[in-house]
């Protein structure tokens, strides 16, 4: 265990497999056996059809920026020395939209429509937080 450098996500009852996979820097998402759609965020039922048979499977995590806002003040005190940083919503090619942070370029250069790929930031307990960076 190291010292946390940001507010670290708690683990909800249903998301244990997600966080376990991040220890290997793998992204897994739930898929609904009934309607075959991808489900985000982790749940005990599919919000698309109400089905309760959900299966975890590997996802690619690449996607395109849907919306972005550069934070000039930290959303949490632990991030005070990281401003400005870009918080984005990314439409994953896997079929869901996630909140993320796009790193690996100037925050002001992150733009809507930009292609991004997954990158990971290590958390203090060995889990990793999904982030994104520009493709190639």
């Amino acid at each position: 265990m190291s010292e946390p450098t940001r507010f670290e996500p708690p683990i909800s009852a249903v998301s244990e497999p997600y966080w376990e996979a991040t220890r290997e820097r793998r992204l897994v998402l739930q898929h609904c056996d009934s309607c075959e759609r991808t489900v985000w965020y982790p749940r005990v039922l599919c919000p698309h059809c109400g089905g309760t048979d959900l299966t975890w499977s590997d996802a690619c995590g690449h996607g395109a920026v849907y919306a972005v806002s550069v934070q000039y003040r930290p959303g949490h005190p632990a991030l005070a020395d990281r401003v400005p940083y870009a918080v984005a919503l990314v439409d994953l090619d896997d079929g869901v939209r996630v909140m993320t942070s796009v790193v690996g370029c100037a925050a002001e250069d992150v733009h809507i429509g930009q292609r991004v790929r997954p990158t990971w930031e290590e958390l203090s307990d060995g889990r990793n937080l999904l982030m994104h960076e520009p493709e190639a």
């Binding site: 507010f7 996500p9 683990i11 959303g75 949490h76 991030l79 942070s101």
Partner: peptide
């Protein structure tokens, strides 16, 4: 769920 899936990214 925002505490697990949004707050960690430092969104105000």
């Amino acid at each position: 769920p925002r505490v697990e899936w949004e707050i960690p990214y430092g969104i105000q």
